[in-house]
Every structure is written in C-alpha cells, then in structure tokens.
Design a protein around this nucleic acid. Structure first.
Lengths: 236, 236
DNA sequence: TGGTCATTCAATCAATAACTTGACTGATTG
DNA sequence: CAATCAGTCAAGTTATTGATTGAATGACCA
C-alpha cells in the first residue's frame, strides 16, 4: 500500500468499484443521454431521492459525471473523460465471458440471432445513400436533449398509433439509450411482427456523441414547455 | 432487479466489482505475464496463500483468469476474453480523470515529461529498421514465459553489473509487465542517468500479446533448472 | 498406504457499502 | 423575509466484503 505500484492499482480499483453497482451504472446511462436533475434521475432509475443523490455524488467524485447548479436544481451530465469507452470495454468483456449477459438478452427477446445490429459505420454509409430511415425510440425529452441528425422520434410508448409515419418499403434502423437499452430491442421486435424491415443500431446515442459525430438538438419552445425539461438542450 | 435492463446492469456491475480491489488487479497483472502457481502469485503480490487463492477464484468466476491443474499445483493464467482491453480502458480513464494517478506516476519518477513512451506502432517500425534495441527488464522467469521477439533480458536487479551488454550509441526501448510496471520506469531513470538513450514502451508484455503480435519463448533446459519455474513455457 | 505438498474450504471478525429516515442548507418565489 | 422547493448531509441498520486462521482435500512420492 506504500509503494507506487499498489497505489496505482488502488486508484484503478477505486474507479472500478464505483462502476461496481448496478444502480450507479443505470444512473450513468441516463446521465449520458443529457443533462438531468437529481429528481428526474431518481425517477428514471426508481431510486429514492437521497439514494440517487448519494450515488450521483459517488459518480461525480470519480469523474464519471459532472454537475452544475441551475436555479434550485442540480443538473448532472456525463463527465468528459473516456467514460463511454470504458463502459464499452466493460460491455464487450461481459458479452464475451458472461453467458448470463448473452442469456438475458437472448431469452428476453428470444431472437437475438435475427436482431443483428447495424454498426455506426454501416449506418453512416446507408444514411448517405438514403437507403435507411433512422428511428429514435426514446422519450421526447431525451430526444430533445440530443439525437442523431435526421432521426425520427417516436417514443416506444407511442409506436402503436404512429405506425403511419414509418415506411414499409425502406429499412428502418432503431436506436435508443445504449447497447442494452430495452426500448430499441422491443421496438425491433414489435415492428418486425408487423412486417417492417427494421434493425437495431449497435449502440445508442451516448456512443454516437462520444465518437464525436454531430448531434441534433431541438430548440425548446420559449414558453415554459409542458415537458419537464424547460432549459434548452445545451450545445456540444 | 426483475427487469432485463437492471439484470444486465447488475451483471456488468458484478464484473466491475471484481476489478474493484487493488490486490486482485495486481494478481491479474502477474497472471497476465504467463502461467503461474498460486504460491508464486501469492509471493509476487505479498498476499497470504489462502487470500491469494480466494482472490484468484473470484477472478476466475468472472473469467478474468483461467486455471488448470499441473500435478499438485494449480496454474493460473489470463482468461481469454478482452481482459487487457478492459484494463486498458480503465487505465486510460484513470489517466484522464484522476489527478492522483498522474500524480503518483510523476512524483515518484519526477520526470514523466521526459519519459515520453514509445507506442507499439513506432516500436515495430524502429525494430524493422534496426534503429532500436529492445530491453526486457522483468525477472528471468517471466521473460521465459514469453517476451517480445528479439528482446534482450536484463532483469532490473542485474542492470548495474550488466551495463556492458547495452549499446551507448543505439536507442534502447525498455518494457516490462504493463503500463504501470515500476521496473521499466526505474530502468529508464537509471540508464538515463548513466547517459544511455533510453525510452519506455508505452505498455508491456500482456498488451503486446493481446494485440496478437508474435511472442518469443525460451525453451527451458531439460534438467531441473535452478529457476523456480520448472515446466517449459507453454506456447501462447 | 502413509506422508507431504499445494491449494481450497469453512468459520470468524472487522471494515465497508447500500439504503432509509429525518434534519439541514441554499436558492427561489410570493 | 417567510415559505417552498431541490438537493445534501448525518446517523443508524443491515448486508457484503476482505483478511485470518486452521482444518480438509487432492495429487504425488516413497
């Protein structure tokens, strides 16, 4: 513990420990969508306010998120180190060596094989030649905080009655909060069942943004909008 | 905890928790050098036997190491998922956002600036045109388990009296167990002080091997060698 | 087959972590 | 400037984790 080597390992371990808690990973995924208040994050993750607050502070101390005050609310967003990269490495490792992970994904959706995801690179190509329609199935407020340029936003909950907006003759690529966001899996399953040609984007919005690709934002209406997030989406 | 999303996060967190302990990270680094017995790993990390054994089992359950029996000894080696990649991501994140990490490195060696490491790519080029000598400063037995092809092995402890083997007119690139292995830092510092042109390889042997690059091994002498590791290095 | 060596298992204890509750603080709003 | 709102802090409870010890196992060796 006194030599520099152990100290370094101890530092690494400290960071890993911060990620070693499901609730914190979940908070992190939500914070990665854009700036959010503690209350909202607590709602989204189904944690008590105090608990969420404490977890967020742990995440902040480790640099995984940053916070700023906006009036009486505290807004948390993703930190600016290579957080997404680290989470990606964790995910890839988990996929490789944890049968459970593959199991959960495949038993829940039961047709993983037919869900072969589209990679970012392929998507970019196909967007260029217009052979694909991009579908963002996240809730409206998350879409507003940032989304892939040109994406159509139909929150998963609204899919049923907004089917008309989707083309039957063009392939659809759906994305969501991240590689394990349930929404896009379900959207693909639901639309497949209705005969749409649809695939999942391999990963989600945060990964896109972290890759330095352009993101679109919605300019919030000047009047206090009915949606919970009143502040316009912060640039970047 | 019942929906698939939380379950996935819980799986990820479980893996992260396994890395969330300095001793385990240290064991992992040693196992990454090659196959080693529990006893040896316990020595190397300065842990009690039982403690090391238990940590190794935790690592094994998570797939970070694999084990096999050899006579009455149990040999542990690195698992075959993208472990090194995950550790690399953790390291890069730590370097980015933990002043402590940079601090430890730089206060201990105090000339981090002048230690600009050589990347694998650059090393490969320079090895090709012969403008560089590769120096492995790990102990002999680790070298025997696998090393970069063409490397000269002078364990750090022996450097003093084996200086004659090193060229004064060619640049030396020293490497070691990994990006934070102390030996190579110290070797660079020591040889710089003596006027050698020496730099550190950015990372160590495990990263090289994980990148799929060729590794050299020493065929152990058929007679029971004086070195602790009696079994010949297992290929790959 | 008994002895020995290398490792694991089981029991224990102390330290740490997660979550809850209720009090506290800081910024806004009437 | 009191009331309210959003979040944090502090204390306490329970569960988990890490380390130690000594006993148990499994494989080899005489």
């Amino acid at each position: 513990m006194t030599n520099p080597k152990s100290e370094i390992f101890e530092q690494f371990a400290e960071l890993a420990r911060v990620l070693g808690q499901g609730n914190r990973l979940e908070l992190l995924e939500h914070a990665a969508q854009g700036e959010r208040s503690v209350e909202r994050l607590a709602q989204l993750t189904d944690l008590s306010l105090a608990n969420a607050s404490q977890h967020l502070q742990v995440l902040r101390r480790a640099g995984f998120v940053r916070s700023r005050r906006d009036g009486k609310r505290m807004l948390y967003r993703l930190g600016d180190g290579p957080v997404i990269e680290l989470l990606g490495a964790l995910r890839r490792y988990a996929e490789h060596s944890r049968a459970e992970v593959r199991g959960i994904v495949s038993t829940y959706f039961d047709r993983l094989d037919s869900l072969e995801p589209v990679s970012r690179e392929v998507l970019l190509e196909r967007l260029d030649d217009g052979s694909v329609v991009l579908l963002d199935v996240r809730p409206e407020d998350e879409f507003a905080l940032g989304h892939l340029p040109g994406a159509l936003n139909i929150p998963f909950a609204d899919l049923e009655w907004r089917l008309a907006e989707l083309p039957k003759d063009t392939q659809i690529v759906a994305y969501c909060r991240g590689p394990y966001c349930v929404l896009s899996f379900e959207a693909v399953a639901a639309l497949r069942a209705r005969g749409y040609d649809i695939r999942r984007l391999e990963d989600g919005f945060p990964e896109w943004k972290a890759a330095g690709l352009p993101v679109g934002t919605v300019i919030a209406a000047p009047s206090p909008a009915p949606t919970p997030s009143a502040t316009p989406a912060s640039g970047r």
